[in-house]
Design a protein around this nucleic acid. Structure first.
Length: 316
DNA sequence: AATAATTTCAACCGCGTTATT
DNA sequence: CAATAACGCGGTTGAAATTAT
C-alpha cells in the first residue's frame, strides 16, 4: 500500500552528471519544456530517474541561473530572510533571482550560518536596532539572550494553482473593537464573504492605488498603521506574486520593500486553505482569516515585527 | 611531498502535499 | 472517498577540493 518509488533504480546512472547527460537534458527541455519529470528520462534517452533530472535542471542547468560569487547584498538578504523564515530555503531563494534553494542552503550551512552567529546585528542601522529592541521586548521569549530568538514565521509549502483575489482596499475591514462587520462595497460577488477565485493570470487593482480612507485600524501609532497597511496589502498581494504573475510590477520602492517583507508571511500558503477558512468564517474579520491561514499552530502574527523590513534602506 | 583533517557542494533521500484517477 | 502519481521541499550524504600538519 505504500508509496511507490518515483522510478525504478535498476540500471540507472547515479552520482555526478556527465557533460553529455547535461546536453541531452538541456536540449530535451528546450524542446519539450519542464515538467513530466517521471517520463522525461525515458523520452530523452537518459539513464536517470526523473527526480534526478529535475534537480539537475533546477539547480544547475537552467539558463537563468547564477552560480557562485554571492554578493555582500545577497548575503545580507539571506541572513535577514533566514531570521524571518528559518530554513525555508526555497522561499529565500525566491527573493534572490538566479539563486537556487540548494545553493543558498549550502552557502548558509558552510558560510553564512557561522557569520550570522558571529555578528548577529552588526549590519543593522541604529534606528532599526531600536525598532528591533522594541519588537523583541514585545515578542520576547523566556530564552537566552542570543540574537537567534527572533520569531520565525513558518508557512506551509504548498502548490499554488489558482489565486484568491484579495479584497480591494475599500473592501477591507481591519480589526475593530467589536469584530462585528465586514463590508464589501464594491464587491461583484453576491456574498461578500465568498472569496473570488480566478485563474493565475487574472489581474486585480492593487490596493495601493486606491483610496485609503476607509480602513478602521485599531492602532494609535501612525507609523505602525502605515507599516501594517503595507504589510497587510502586500501579504495579499504576494499571494498572487507566488504564482509568478506580479514579478516586476511597477510599484514604488517602498511598496516593493513592503511587498517583499510582508510577502514572506504567506507567499506560499494554500489558496484553498484560505478559501475554506473564508467560507467557514462567521464573525471573524478578514484580517483574522488571513492571519489564521498564514500561520501554523500557535504562532501569532505581529505585523509591526516586520516593520524593520519595510525600510527601503534595508532592502537591496 | 605525503597524509590527515576540514570544507564545499552536487546529488540523493524521505516525506508532505496536491492532483489525478 | 481512497489509492496512486507527481511534484517540491528540507535534511543528509559523500566525493572532490582545499587547507593544515
Amino acid at each position: 500500500m505504500g508509496r511507490s518509488p518515483c522510478c525504478s533504480k535498476e540500471g540507472l546512472n547515479r552520482g555526478a552528471w556527465t557533460a553529455l547527460e547535461d546536453k541531452i537534458l538541456t536540449s530535451y527541455i528546450k524542446v519539450h519544456g519542464e515538467g513530466k519529470w517521471r517520463n522525461l528520462p525515458k523520452r530523452a534517452g537518459l539513464k536517470r530517474c526523473g527526480k534526478s533530472c529535475r534537480l539537475r535542471w533546477l539547480n544547475y542547468l537552467r539558463p537563468d541561473i547564477k552560480r557562485g560569487n554571492i554578493s555582500h547584498d545577497e548575503e545580507e538578504l539571506i541572513i535577514r530572510l533566514h531570521k524571518l523564515l528559518g530554513n525555508r530555503w526555497s522561499l529565500i531563494a525566491g527573493r534572490l533571482p538566479g539563486r537556487t534553494d540548494n545553493e543558498i542552503k549550502n552557502y548558509w550551512n558552510t558560510t553564512l550560518g557561522k557569520k550570522a552567529k558571529a555578528q548577529p546585528l552588526s549590519s543593522q542601522s541604529k534606528s532599526n536596532k531600536l525598532k528591533k529592541q522594541a519588537i523583541d521586548s514585545d515578542t520576547a521569549e523566556p530564552s537566552d539572550s542570543t540574537a537567534d530568538k527572533v520569531q520565525v514565521i513558518r508557512t506551509r509549502a504548498t502548490r499554488c494553482t489558482k489565486a484568491l483575489v484579495p479584497l480591494t482596499h475599500s473592501q477591507l475591514v481591519l480589526p475593530t473593537d467589536d469584530h462585528d462587520q465586514i463590508y464589501n462595497r464594491n464587491s461583484t460577488s453576491t456574498d461578500p464573504l465568498q472569496p473570488q477565485v480566478v485563474q493565475q493570470n487574472y489581474l486585480v487593482d492593487h490596493p495601493h492605488n486606491q483610496d485609503s480612507n476607509n480602513s478602521n485600524l485599531g492602532y494609535g501609532d501612525e507609523e505602525a498603521q502605515e507599516n501594517m497597511h503595507g504589510a497587510f496589502y502586500s501579504a495579499d498581494f504576494l499571494n498572487l506574486s507566488c504564482c509568478n504573475e506580479f514579478e516586476g510590477s511597477n510599484f514604488d520602492e517602498k511598496m516593493e520593500s513592503a511587498t517583499a517583507a510582508a510577502g514572506y508571511i504567506n507567499s506560499n500558503i494554500s489558496i484553498d486553505q484560505d478559501q475554506s477558512q473564508l467560507q467557514n468564517l462567521n464573525e471573524t474579520t478578514t484580517m483574522d482569516c488571513w492571519t489564521t491561514a498564514c500561520l501554523e499552530d500557535n504562532a501569532t502574527i505581529n505585523f509591526e515585527s516586520l516593520a524593520f523590513l519595510l525600510d527601503p534602506e534595508e532592502w537591496p
